[in-house]
Design a protein around this nucleic acid. Structure first.
Lengths: 114, 114
DNA sequence: CGGAATCCAATACGATACTG
DNA sequence: CAGTATCGTATTGGATTCCG
């Protein structure tokens, strides 16, 4: 970081905020994880995530859908069923998530001893 | 992400939250950028960041110091001067920041067209 | 089942004034 | 200069109830 110039760094603030907004919040990553484990139905996902409320799950799924990470499909069965699946695009987050995880792991060691 | 198992993903949530907590918020990265440009004094940093208040700068600098990213030094000059510098440890954030920036850039293209 | 509506609590952030 | 104190606002998340 120190070897980059100021204006170049400033310009990168916007995309960084974009990225943070997408994955931040208390539930987004937990939802992605629950879905990556194969859960596709609203109630299924809800059961996988302790303490989440239907209100928050609904809200977060909408945001993930807007950001093209989740696809929502309504099936015309009786009763109608609704399926949530991660899009292939969601895999592009992997590098970001891994970077955060790696840094988080070593930071925790540094802060609280290994 | 899809090819990892659920419990392994769940375990990574804690370090990810650690990392996000450190860099999240409206000002943290702006402060780091201002400091990486060579600003070391409180008022200097404040001037580099439009709209930040002394209250927020003070609060965020404390948190960055707690997380070992910033070193605060009091010099016994007259009047006393105080210097803030990024620690070498702060450079370890580079990979995280770059990953966020890269994803953010391509996400913005995907969402709003190139 | 898959939510929406309403209300409430906590936290983040801002404005302003002031201090050693 | 380098902050602190106080207050107000805004955004976020939670609890509960209800609906087709």
């Amino acid at each position: 970081m120190e070897n980059k110039n100021h204006t170049a760094c400033l310009k990168s603030l916007l995309p960084i905020r974009d990225a943070l907004d997408v994955i931040n919040g208390k539930w987004k990553l937990q939802i992605i994880i629950a879905m990556s484990a194969g859960n596709t139905r609203f109630k299924e996902i809800e059961r996988q995530i302790p303490k989440i409320t239907s209100r928050m799950l609904s809200k977060e799924l909408k945001e993930l859908e807007i950001n093209l990470l989740v696809k929502r499909t309504v099936y015309d069965s009786l009763p109608v069923t609704i399926e949530y699946v991660l899009t292939p695009y969601a895999e592009s987050l992997e590098k970001v998530i891994d970077a955060l995880k790696d840094w988080g792991i070593q930071h925790r060691k540094k802060m609280y001893g290994k």
